[in-house]
């Protein structure tokens, strides 16, 4: 197993953990942090798979803009899920 394969496997495990964290969290702010972590890891995975255009889109939109819009929306509505 080459070192690149090991990195891909570790990042995939982190991706699944972060996604499950985001889904099962009752505190919506923490769920937003989970989705942001998913974006970070997914962007690195796209980069390893030699798709820099998609990685750049994921970095520009997933890491910054989506997080911000979700946080503003939480501020306007409420933070905890019932």
């Amino acid at each position: 197993m080459s070192w690149l394969m090991i990195i891909v496997v570790v990042l995939s495990v982190v991706l699944i953990i972060a996604a499950l964290f985001a889904v099962y969290q009752k505190d919506l702010l923490l769920a937003v942090i989970g989705t942001s972590a998913v974006s970070v890891v997914l962007s690195v995975l796209f980069y390893i798979l030699q798709a820099p255009d998609v990685a750049l889109t994921e970095a520009a939109i997933g890491v910054a803009l989506t997080t911000i819009i979700f946080v503003i929306t939480i501020k306007k509505t409420k933070r905890f899920e019932e």
Partner: peptide, 20 residues
């Protein structure tokens, strides 16, 4: 270039959460 955009933009999200 991807890394450049990453380094520039990644702090804005954290800054917004901190301001919240």
């Amino acid at each position: 270039d991807v890394s450049l955009i990453y380094g520039v933009l990644s702090f804005v999200g954290v800054l917004t959460i901190a301001r919240y």
